[in-house]
Design a binder for these strands. Sequence first.
DNA 1: CATTAATATAGTACGCGTTCTATATTAATG
DNA 2: CATTAATATAGAACGCGTACTATATTAATG
Lengths: 206, 206
Amino acid sequence: MAKTAGRPPRSESDIAEYRSKIAKQALAIYRAEGFDAVSMRRLAKEVGCAPMTIYAHFEGKQDILRYLWTDVFADMSNEIQGKLERIDAPVERLQMATQTFVSYWVDHPDHFRLVFMSNDVTRSDVSTFVMDEETLAHFRMFSELVQVVLQDDSNVKASTDTLISGMIGIALCLNTIRDYPWTDAKMMTDRLLTSIIAPVDTAPRS
Amino acid sequence: MAKTAGRPPRSESDIAEYRSKIAKQALAIYRAEGFDAVSMRRLAKEVGCAPMTIYAHFEGKQDILRYLWTDVFADMSNEIQGKLERIDAPVERLQMATQTFVSYWVDHPDHFRLVFMSNDVTRSDVSTFVMDEETLAHFRMFSELVQVVLQDDSNVKASTDTLISGMIGIALCLNTIRDYPWTDAKMMTDRLLTSIIAPVDTAPRS
DNA sequence: CATTAATATAGTACGCGTTCTATATTAATG
DNA sequence: CATTAATATAGAACGCGTACTATATTAATG
């Protein structure tokens, strides 16, 4: 078990530092010039390293883009929190959060594309990414809003997940299938909320 | 108003023929080797024309990919119809259709990517595409299933749109955000259906 | 200091979508 | 036939993500 000769592997902190340096620059480019401006070659140039060096720290572009999620989610969360400040009634709070969530993604198609449409869905081998605690917290915020409205604890997770995926679906449809005459976003969102707010004990049966 | 000299513009039928020839070849490649295999250069080679000629008939790659939607939607629709054959009860038919719809997109991530994730959401200028009648029919199928279950005609469109976008959202979340411990697809789908099946006269209020 | 292993770099390469320019082909008019 | 306008082609170019190879550079060991 003697230590081998040669240069030792980078320290954990060094790795993290370099990664965050690259991610931070990617964020700066994205914020300033949008999705298409973020390229590996340019990123390397601005970070001050060779293009191939980035591949020593990230698996690929997707791996870098995921670090931008955190920022986008935080931005969205801020918008929701601002709207919730002056609202006390639980149901109205959930309604406002839901409407704001959907509006955010509809109003920011580029952010929507970044988070939900820039993944290579086909390849399942590169899914080693673990959602960071900060991003998960935003999901949990909805869980808490739902929990206050629902009395039945057992259904909170299923209800929240359905709500979240439903909201995202509304945003996706409005963003991608533009020529279909979709019902107004607010109306669909309200309708979706119905399945959460109206307590249901049994699965739908004929 | 005398006719100008020179070669006349292609006839409508010629244009349609060439377009469908290209689209058909794109479909063949997609079916045989998947999404990534469909490239402009290869498509041109197999069609037997120069790469640039394609741009005379289509605005770009997106414009071609949309022609593949028709085929994918038809495939999905077939699967649903097959499942519905032996079911009579309206609610059960709607349930089966819903479950099959979601399963289809979860089981075929490449098709999902093609239809819902390969659009350039950011640029709104290229949305001249008009959904063809055949694809719209599949949306209408859900509308009819919903209509039979709901007595109230006025809510059918809003309910159907919400259901469709919700189903797509479930598929999107399961496909893209893989490390989040989503509730079982069937459970979320059932829960989503609740908002449609359970008749609601007023929007949710506290 | 010499060795050794981890890391970074430079350069090349492939195919991609897309744009541009210049040239050829085609099918009508006068 | 000459003219003319619509169309097709060839070829180069740009930047892209990514892979490969070969060559430094670095920081530890013996």
